[in-house]
C-alpha cells in the first residue's frame, strides 16, 4: 500500500518475503504441531522414538481413552471452565468500572491506586504471602481462593488497557445520559460499557489465554485432585508413575488440554487478531 519502490521490484520482494516466511513457519509452528499430533496417535513404544513419521500402529483410541479415564480430564475441564468463565467476566466488569472512574478522576488517592494497579501487571506476584493470607481466611487450596487471587492479579491488565482507552473518549455521551436522569450505574451499563467493547475484547483475549493456561498460581493455590484445573491434570498425568515419560499419553493429554482454546481461536481468530493489532494494546 505504502511502498515507494517500483511495482516489479516490490512484487519480487513480496514473493521472496512470503517464501521466506513460509519456510520459517515450518519449523516454528508446523513441525511442533505435527510432532504433537502424530505422536499422540502412536503406541508407547513407537512414540518413545520421538520421530515425525506416521504411526505404523495406530493407538489413538487407546491413548485418548486413557487421558479421559486415568488423566482426570473431565474433572480438569469442568474446573477450568467453572474458574475461567466467572473470573474473566468479573475481571472485565470490575476492571472496566474502575477504569472509567480512574479515567475521569484526578483525585490523589485514585491516582495512587491506579499506579498500584498498573504495577500489579508489571511485577511478579508474591505467592507465599498470598498463601499465608488465604490460609488465614480459610481459602487456601480451594477454588474460591484461587479465583479470588486470579481476579485480583488480572484486573490490573483491564484497568491499564481501558483507562488509556476511556481517556480518548469524549465525555459528551456520559453527560447526555446524566442530563437525561440516568444514574451512574445505568450510565456505566448502557453508555460506557458498550463504548469500551473493542478494548474489553482485546483485554478478554489476553485474560482468557492467561487464566486458561495459568499453572503458577494453580500449582501453589489449588490442592487435591478434585480441584485440579487442566494444566494441573496435564502435569500430574505426565509425571505419572513408571518413571519413563509416556510420550504418546503426554501428547494426547496436551492435545486435549489445548483443544478448548484452539476451538475458540479458530472461531474468533479474525476478531482476536484484529482486536490485538488495532485496539488498545499500546493505549
Amino acid at each position: 500500500m505504502s511502498t515507494t519502490s517500483p511495482m516489479q521490484a516490490s512484487r519480487l520482494q513480496q514473493t521472496l518475503k512470503y517464501i521466506f516466511l513460509g519456510i520459517f513457519a515450518v519449523p516454528w509452528v508446523a513441525v511442533p504441531l505435527w510432532m504433537l499430533l502424530v505422536n499422540s496417535f502412536k503406541t508407547e513404544g513407537e512414540s518413545s522414538v520421538l520421530s515425525l513419521a506416521l504411526p505404523t500402529e495406530w493407538a489413538a483410541v487407546e491413548n485418548y481413552t486413557k487421558v479421559f479415564t486415568e488423566g482426570n480430564y473431565f474433572v480438569g475441564l469442568g474446573n477450568s471452565l467453572l474458574i475461567a468463565i466467572p473470573v474473566v467476566v468479573v475481571v472485565l466488569i470490575l476492571g472496566s468500572m474502575a477504569a472509567w472512574a480512574y479515567a475521569r478522576s484526578n483525585a490523589m488517592g485514585l491516582r495512587v491506586t491506579f499506579f498500584i494497579s498498573a504495577m500489579s501487571i508489571m511485577l511478579p506476584p508474591a505467592i507465599i504471602p498470598t498463601i499465608f493470607i488465604l490460609t488465614k481466611i480459610g481459602l487456601q487450596g480451594t477454588t474460591w481462593g484461587y479465583m479470588l487471587v486470579l481476579t485480583a492479579t488480572k484486573v490490573g491488565v483491564i484497568i491499564f488497557l481501558a483507562v488509556g482507552f476511556v481517556r480518548t473518549l469524549p465525555t459528551d455521551y456520559e453527560e447526555a445520559a446524566q442530563l437525561d436522569g440516568a444514574g451512574r450505574l445505568r450510565t456505566y451499563w448502557h453508555v460506557i460499557l458498550p463504548l469500551m467493547r473493542p478494548v474489553l475484547f482485546t483485554g478478554a483475549v489476553m485474560l482468557v489465554i492467561g487464566v486458561w493456561n495459568d499453572f503458577l498460581f494453580a500449582l501453589f493455590l489449588l490442592a487435591g485432585k478434585a480441584n485440579a484445573t487442566l494444566p494441573l491434570t496435564l502435569y500430574s498425568f505426565a509425571l505419572a508413575p513408571t518413571g519413563a515419560v509416556r510420550w504418546n499419553l503426554v501428547f494426547a493429554s496436551v492435545v486435549m488440554t489445548s483443544i478448548p482454546l484452539f476451538i475458540a481461536y479458530v472461531v474468533l481468530q479474525r476478531r482476536v487478531l484484529s482486536g490485538l493489532t488495532e485496539g488498545g494494546t499500546t493505549g
Binding site: 470490575l94 498500584i116 490490573g156
Partner: peptide, 29 residues
C-alpha cells in the same frame, strides 16, 4: 468520596489485598 471512588472500590480492595499486601509482606517474610 465521589462516584469515582465507589466504582473503583471493588478493584482497589482486590488489588490491595492480593497484590500490594502480599508484595509488601513478602519483604517481611
Amino acid at each position: 468520596p465521589t462516584w469515582h471512588f465507589w466504582f473503583a472500590l471493588p478493584a482497589i480492595i482486590l488489588v490491595l489485598a492480593f497484590f500490594l499486601v502480599p508484595f509488601l509482606a513478602n519483604a517481611g517474610f
